[in-house]
Design a protein around this nucleic acid. Structure first.
Length: 735
RNA sequence: GCGCGUAUAGCUCAGUGGUUAGAGCAUCCGUUUCACAUGCGGAAGGUCGUUGGUUCGGAUCCAACUACGCGCACCA
């Protein structure tokens, strides 16, 4: 790579050619082995970033390029400062997300997941993700990611699953995990339950129907309820009124006739009923409404599940049998009208939950699911998972940048409900639980036949010896495994890694997954290791297009980071993603902006080319400097301090802008022009050469974390001026 | 309903108590043997959302209001 000084004019083209350079440079770094911090000859402290694992179901998009840029910037900066900089890469199997992507592909071929056995389906998705993993890895390299590939992990690696299972078993032992029949958010299209977070609420115009329920003993008398969901009437098991409600006090305990399937149901009293809403009387449908479920449970009411998991009503709903929800609503209104039970309709606007992926209306359904109890106090400290996480932020063990997200975090954590981690899909980590089908003795019955396994499939029931065992058909929520990513990845590598690199230094990710991911990593990290998983959470903004739309492939407005890289170079893209990007603030990116930084690349290239050509006859020794020369270098020292300070304070945008401005408008426009004349006129030209080389070298160093390829490429051209230790810019010392 | 954020040049954004408020892109004018036209030189462009307060001094701190964006929770 290095070439002699006299060849310079011939060999260095007038414009920077990234296409010819980037691959070679990445290879040079990789060959050096210094992506692995253990190979660095440094006594510096560890600086660790665990890469947020991209989903192994699709190539990278521009949002990934943001995290690659910022994390690589941090890692390269700390590596140059002499820290043991570890950036641990990996990919996520992304359970539900991947299954959806894959099923879409199947649909194009006229197939669905039901065209295969569970094992076949799993194998197909496995192959698909393996293919994508490779693509993602190549793309990360193209963007210049200096991560330690020797430690690369996938969320479905055996060692990772082992850690995940251990956590599961431990939570079970500590009583923080329970299996329960609960009302869950269920998407009838995807046929799986979700946690609270996967439900998106949208305002919708609906009708409030006033329906009469006649008294069994006196059909002339009736009580009226208001409901938006008349189709669930066959699931009613009671009418509830507020015990303070004077209108209804005397009616409590009476029986009324439910008007669709004509069953007798009681009137009960419960303080959760709002006196002022509707008629003050509430129909109780425990199987299909969250509040009703709670009320039903407290009053020991029957759970009448009238809706099947395929989104159709069953025979318990009499005349609605076989209908979908919206059909059943129309049908039920028809029936009520005919029975003269519907007395009025009112316009009503309310928020309705939708599946975040397909928009289907979420049905509250009763299912047996695994939940993590976030409120139960446990262990020596007698605190809940929720309390531990809040405490970690309050005591500054974890700092969130920007800090206003700390408030958002508290707000969310304080309102946190138990976390449903069961998903009714095939792709993912299977829940490590078996159920004894026989339950032959009292012990087994008292344990409800639940067998939580960590290592291997149990062959017989440890309580009663039965061999009739059935594994839980569900898989774990993806976030349950990725929530353990910071320690699982380290545990799955060398045995010393956890000790050396945990807690990690920075978790850099988008603010949109603060709750999905960051909060869960904090809870699970504190749970497993009694230590925070990271000290700083840096939240970058989402990339939006010119119309402020979130870029996504499904919207078709995504900028392909790799296509842009091919066109303008990875360095230009990186710079465009850093500058103007402040934490927590969404960033808008356009091709013009990237082009602007391509021009900057070229500026760096040509300024360096000029310096190289001007160095003829320079012996590298420090010559005598004039006082104005000294002032120039003093000013440069101040710039260096400023940039370093910005980087230490996570103000990447300002650091980048300062560098950009100094390099172009001070170094290139003023200093080079001045020195050019001095060299030409042989006026103290040794000092001029010294200044050019000194400032350029340090600028290249400082630019390196931002624009690693071009700076390294130029550095290699200056080979003869560097000490042996600094043959690679990547591991040179920060100025 | 509760909470968060944003408002500065045509566009995207810096600027968190101190000269005349900055940058990039876009615009206009000029400019090609001399490192770079992916360049160079120059110009134009702003009531810093509105109102009030604190201060010697406010784009910056405080309050209210307006507009936009977002999150969370909801009474059927």
């Amino acid at each position: 790579m290095p070439i002699g000084v006299c060849d310079m004019r011939k060999n260095l083209s007038k414009t920077y050619e990234h296409q010819k350079t980037e691959k070679k440079i990445y290879h040079l770094w990789e060959k050096s082995g210094f992506f692995n911090p253990d190979k660095l000859q440094t006594k510096g402290p560890p600086f660790t970033i665990i890469m947020p694992p991209p989903n192994a179901n699709d190539p990278l998009h521009i949002g990934h390029a943001v995290f690659v840029t910022l994390e690589d910037l941090l890692i390269r900066y700390h590596r140059m400062k002499g820290d043991k900089a570890l950036w641990l890469p990996g990919t996520d199997h992304a359970g539900f997300e991947t299954q959806v992507v894959f099923e879409k592909k199947l649909a194009q071929e006229g197939k669905s997941r039901f065209s295969f056995t569970r094992d076949e389906f799993y194998r197909l998705v496995w192959e698909y993700t393996q293919k994508n993993k490779k693509i993602v890895k190549e793309q990360l390299k193209k963007l210049g990611a200096s991560c330690d590939w020797s430690r690369e992990k996938f969320t479905l690696d055996k060692k990772i699953i082992k850690v995940v299972y251990e956590t599961f078993a431990s939570l079970w032992k500590d009583g923080l995990l329970y299996r329960g029949q609960r009302i869950v958010n269920y998407c009838p299209k995807h046929q799986t339950a979700f946690s609270e977070l996967e439900v998106k609420y949208q305002e919708e115009k609906a009708k409030l129907y006033y329906v009469q329920y006649c008294f069994r003993n006196n059909p002339q008398k009736s009580i009226t309820v208001a409901t938006t969901r008349p189709e669930t009437i066959p699931g009613d098991v009671a009418i509830a009124v507020n015990p303070q409600d004077e209108r209804y006090k005397s009616l409590i305990g009476e029986l009324v006739i439910e008007p669709i399937t004509k069953r007798e149901i009681p009137i009960i009293a419960d303080p959760r009923v709002e006196i002022d809403f509707g008629t003050g009387a509430l129909k109780i449908t425990p199987a299909h409404d969250a509040t009703d479920f709670e009320i039903g449970k407290d009053h020991n009411l029957e759970i009448r599940q009238t809706l099947n998991f395929d989104g159709r009503f069953n025979k318990l709903s009499g005349p609605l049998n076989g209908l979908k929800v919206n059909e059943a609503r129309l049908q039920s209104i028809e029936i009520l009208k005919n029975n003269k039970a519907l007395i009025k309709e009112e316009d009503y606007t309310h928020e309705v939950g939708h599946c975040y992926k397909c928009g289907t209306i979420i049905e509250p359904m009763i299912m047996d699911q695994w939940f993590i109890d976030v409120n139960k106090k446990f262990g020596k400290r007698n605190k809940s998972l929720k309390e531990l996480a809040i405490e970690a932020i309050k005591t500054k063990k974890i700092k969130i940048i920007p800090s206003n997200f700390e408030k958002v975090f508290y707000y969310w954590m304080e309102n946190l409900k138990d976390w449903n981690i069961s998903r009714q899909i095939y792709w993912g980590i299977r829940i490590p639980v078996w159920y004894c089908q026989e339950q032959k003795n009292e012990i087994c019955k008292s344990k409800k036949g639940i067998i939580v396994a960590t290592k291997r499939t149990p062959l017989k029931c440890p309580y009663c010896g039965s061999t009739k065992l059935m594994q839980d058909p569900d898989v774990l929520d993806t976030w349950f495994s990725s929530g353990q990513w910071p320690f699982a990845t380290l545990m799955a590598n060398k045995t010393t890694d956890l000790k050396n690199y945990y807690p990690t230094s920075v978790m850099e990710t988008g603010w949109d997954i603060l709750f999905f991911w960051v909060a869960r990593m904090i809870m699970l990290g504190l749970y497993r290791l009694q230590q925070v998983p990271f000290k700083i959470v840096y939240l970058h903004g989402l990339v939006r297009d010119k119309d402020r739309q979130k870029m996504s492939k499904s919207k078709g407005n995504a900028i392909d980071p790799l296509a842009v890289t091919d066109l303008y170079g990875a360095d230009a893209l990186r710079m465009a993603l850093v500058i103007g990007n402040s934490p927590g603030q969404d960033i808008i990116i356009s091709e013009e902006k990237i082009r602007g930084y391509r021009n900057f690349s070229n500026k760096i290239w040509n300024a360096s080319r000029f310096v190289l050509m001007s160095l003829e006859g320079f012996n590298g020794k420090k010559p005598k400097l004039t006082s104005s020369d000294k002032k120039l270098l003093d000013d440069f020292e101040k710039i260096k301090e400023k940039i370093t300070r910005y980087l230490d304070n996570y103000r990447f945008s300002l650091a980048g802008e300062t560098l950009y401005h100094y390099f172009w408008h001070t170094f290139a426009d003023k200093i080079i022009e001045e020195m050019k004349i001095r060299i030409r006129e042989k006026n103290n030209e040794k000092a001029a050469q010294y200044i050019l080389l000194t400032i350029l070298s340090d600028c290249l160093k400082m630019l390196h974390p931002f624009m690693p390829f071009i700076t390294e490429a130029i550095w290699q051209q200056f080979n003869k001026y560097h000490s042996k230790k600094e043959k690679l810019l990547m591991i040179s010392l920060w100025p």
